[in-house]
């Protein structure tokens, strides 16, 4: 039973890491209806920029705001150069543009900062917490707990931003109906710029945590693959959905790998979350927390 709880808790904490990436997708989808294929690359870009700046002599606390500025500028530039010319174009055009953007950012990051694999130390050990191990016999990583705390703060800040600020309310209006929002004088392009900048900041947080865990390398772009089933399960436009979806996916994939994996030769962690998400979609096509769309025909 103790082992079961260990797997379960480890899975839930991994899920938090997936949620961090999923949040970036949700933000952009909420505001513009665009599925941002480049979100994983933005995570990589942010982490690589941060490490690159520290290699050029900046301290952690100087590199952090500097990278934040770079990510915000990147978000604004994407809005200006890629999205604005595509306003009123079909959603698929915007989606295709983000695919192109993904490859552009991958190449750009490697041209600017090189292809070497780097370590990233954020000062939190990824080792079991001694007193939990001694008292309960469970191995819970300090790093995972810090990541969960950061995710909680981030979600609280985003929730506040969306519900309590003027920009947040404008953003929700844009998400509900672009044309109606424009009609009441909400500056659509300004809102998109802000959302992309916020998504850049979220990518930085995700990049630092994933980079600290896996090293800063190209494979960070793959973390987006972990966020996809989270989005399918939780719903594309729901911040709580990204969190709950992440927890469900994280816990279920670990439990499946440990308890079902040996029956089928193992290695099911990669595809099991997608199967789970597909099963949920059969019953709730909008995901667990997505908005139910009813259209007259």
């Amino acid at each position: 039973m103790q082992f079961f709880f260990e797997v379960l808790i480890g899975g839930l904490l991994s899920g938090v890491m997936y949620s961090l990436v999923a949040l970036g997708f949700v933000l952009i989808y909420k505001a513009s209806g665009v599925f941002n294929f480049a979100q994983g690359t933005m995570v990589f870009f942010a982490a690589l920029t941060f490490v690159g700046l520290t290699e050029h002599g900046l301290s952690f606390w100087m590199a952090l705001p500097a990278t934040l500025v770079v990510m915000v500028l990147l978000g604004l530039a994407i809005e200006r150069a890629v999205l604005r010319p595509l306003v009123n174009q079909p959603q698929i055009s915007l989606f295709m543009a983000t695919i192109g953007l993904s490859f552009l950012l991958e190449g750009l990051a490697q041209i600017v900062w090189g292809t070497s694999v780097r370590g990233l130390d954020i000062g939190v050990a990824d080792e079991p917490i001694g007193w939990i191990a001694d008292r309960f016999g469970l191995n819970i990583s300090k790093f995972d707990l810090v990541a969960a705390l950061i995710a909680a703060v981030l979600v609280a800040a985003l929730a506040f931003f969306f519900s309590r600020t003027r920009i947040g309310r404008a953003l929700r209006a844009v998400a509900d109906d672009h044309q109606a929002a424009l009609a009441v004088g909400i500056p659509l392009q300004q809102i998109w710029g802000i959302v992309w900048a916020v998504a850049g900041a979220v990518a930085l947080v995700a990049g630092l945590l994933w980079g600290a865990r896996n090293g800063v390398q190209f494979a960070l772009t793959f973390v987006a693959l972990k966020a996809l089933p989270v989005l399918m399960l939780g719903g594309l436009e729901s911040v709580p959905g990204a969190i709950v979806g992440g927890l469900i996916i994280g816990a279920s994939e670990k439990l499946a790998e440990v308890y079902l994996g040996p029956m089928v030769g193992g290695g099911i962690e990669g595809w099991f979350p997608y199967v789970l998400a597909l099963v949920v979609l059969l019953f709730r096509p909008e995901g667990l927390f997505g908005e139910k769309i009813i259209r007259r025909v």
């Binding site: 899975g11 896996n214 494979a219 972990k226 670990k254 290695g267």
Partner: peptide, 16 residues
């Protein structure tokens, strides 16, 4: 024998 699904960005279940 324990397989790890590529790319192997998360391995908690395997190491447990």
């Amino acid at each position: 024998k324990i397989p790890i699904t590529p790319p192997g960005t998360t391995q908690e279940s395997v190491w447990l």
